[in-house]
């Protein structure tokens, strides 16, 4: 009632992809981006790397122990 219906359509972007500077955008503020990534994702990184590093360390410790047991 009295409202003009909004026409549903795709957003028209005026900016050409060639003007978006994709490659320079990758390197822009790289240290800042890396810091942000680390602070935001340290828990995820720990959950991913923890089991991998943990199992790898345990295997190395076990094999070293086996080797020493055979030696002495």
């Amino acid at each position: 009632m009295g409202k003009i219906p909004v026409k549903m359509k795709a957003v028209q972007y005026a900016l050409s992809p060639y003007q978006q500077k994709v490659m320079p955008g990758l390197w822009k503020d790289l240290p800042g981006k890396l810091t942000h990534k680390v602070t935001e994702n340290w828990l995820s990184a720990s959950l991913l790397l923890g089991p991998l590093v943990g199992v790898y360390s345990y295997v190395n410790w076990y094999l070293e122990k086996e080797k020493l047991n055979h030696r002495y």
């Binding site: 828990l43 995820s44 990184a45 959950l47 991913l48 790397l49 923890g50 089991p51 991998l52």
Partner: peptide, 8 residues
């Protein structure tokens, strides 16, 4: 968290 553990 489950996803990252699954990946590991």
């Amino acid at each position: 968290g489950q996803f990252w553990l699954l990946l590991a």
